[in-house]
Design a protein around this nucleic acid. Structure first.
Lengths: 199, 199
DNA sequence: CGTCGAATTGATGTCATTCAACTACAGTGG
DNA sequence: CCACTGTAGTTGAATGACATCAATTCGACG
């Protein structure tokens, strides 16, 4: 099976374990193709899986009382995404996980990780590292939202995620930065003006 | 030793392991008394320890280009605090960890955790749970900074941390919320007015 | 070509910041 | 005991950053 081949090679790479290991856990994960705008999680549901993006791009966002979207995270190829609050504490999720592009996603159940760790204890360490990185990201984001202006946050975004910048509409970048599309448009205009002056 | 007694009972509680377990690791942790305004970590240093607050109150904050403080986290009794970005990735910290009150803190080195996990593998799971909770907190914070007004964030703070509210000056609450002390003062005034109307 | 969502632009509004003045109060030293 | 000092908190007026609303342009795609 072609898809199964992909699962094993990708996962063995990210978790740094032999392919055979992943194969033994293949009952607990499956490949799913999702089309643009399709949901993998919706508000009110309990998140039971972790999603590994093999191809495409996902985003996680919340809806506020005014129906406005706020993007918490993007997940391009080789990224994991999930609502850990919901997954680990069995609480209803406040978030949506949606395909920004047609995508191929490995759905990894809780049992998948349990099995992996059981058979290959080293997985636990890699898992831990993923959590640590997640914390680092979130902490940087909090600090940036507290300390930086919209312009500075946009500059950071360009540096950090130049690939994503080119793949999502501008209003999604604005949503991620915590400003309106109109404001981002003006920020960009202002930056263009500045760069022109100094060249 | 009195302090050693405290270490073991507190830590055995939080990590859900027998006291004897902690005692075997007591070489890797120590009790430190810090006075108000004393630092446990400063910007530019590499964070090598995790701090467990037995008594008192700590805060972690960053300084922006204008010298303005931005509080990332408070840590009252029985909380762990650390700059995990720095600790786990050996990077210079962007943050300060400082005592808000005279405090007593257990300093837990990396080796402490390594030893604990080695001798009591179950520690790893509890450790994992702590990371998951940390992620949940940070994610909620990001969402709140993106989606909520200053007034809503203040209301959430009151509900979530009523104890801390009473122990820190108002300007620190403002810093945590991401607004100026003046703004918080006005938010509070407005809330008082509203509550008066409806009573 | 016509349509629809995305992006830009202008005019205006709102919320929070800044700066400055003032009050309240705790701690210090004469 | 009182004056002196410094920090916290409040308030007002002006400013600034970003939001909102509305109109227009741009661009992809059927």
């Amino acid at each position: 099976m072609d898809s199964l081949q992909n699962i094993t090679s990708y996962l063995s790479e990210i978790f740094e374990i032999p392919k055979e290991a992943v194969e033994t856990c293949s009952n607990f994960c499956m490949l799913k193709k999702v089309v643009k705008n399709e949901f993998l999680l919706q508000e009110g549901e309990i998140c039971t899986d972790t999603f590994f993006v093999e191809k495409g791009l996902l985003r996680m966002y919340s809806l506020d009382r005014n129906g406005k979207e706020h993007i918490i995270q993007f997940a391009p190829e080789n990224w994991l995404i999930s609502d850990r609050s919901s997954l680990n504490f069995n609480q209803k999720s406040k978030y949506y996980i949606e395909a920004v592009e047609d995508s191929e996603v490995f759905i990894l159940s809780k049992d998948f990780f349990i099995n992996m760790i059981e058979k290959f204890p080293q997985t636990a360490e890699n898992n831990d590292l993923l959590l640590q990185k997640h914390i680092r990201n979130l902490q940087n984001r909090v600090n940036s939202l507290l300390a930086d202006t919209a312009e500075e946050r946009y500059m950071s975004f360009i540096k950090m995620y130049p690939d994503i910048l080119l793949r999502v509409p501008q209003w999604m970048v604005a949503s991620y930065l915590g400003i309106t599309p109109e404001s981002l448009s003006r920020v960009r205009k202002e930056l263009a003006r500045k760069n022109f002056e100094t060249s």
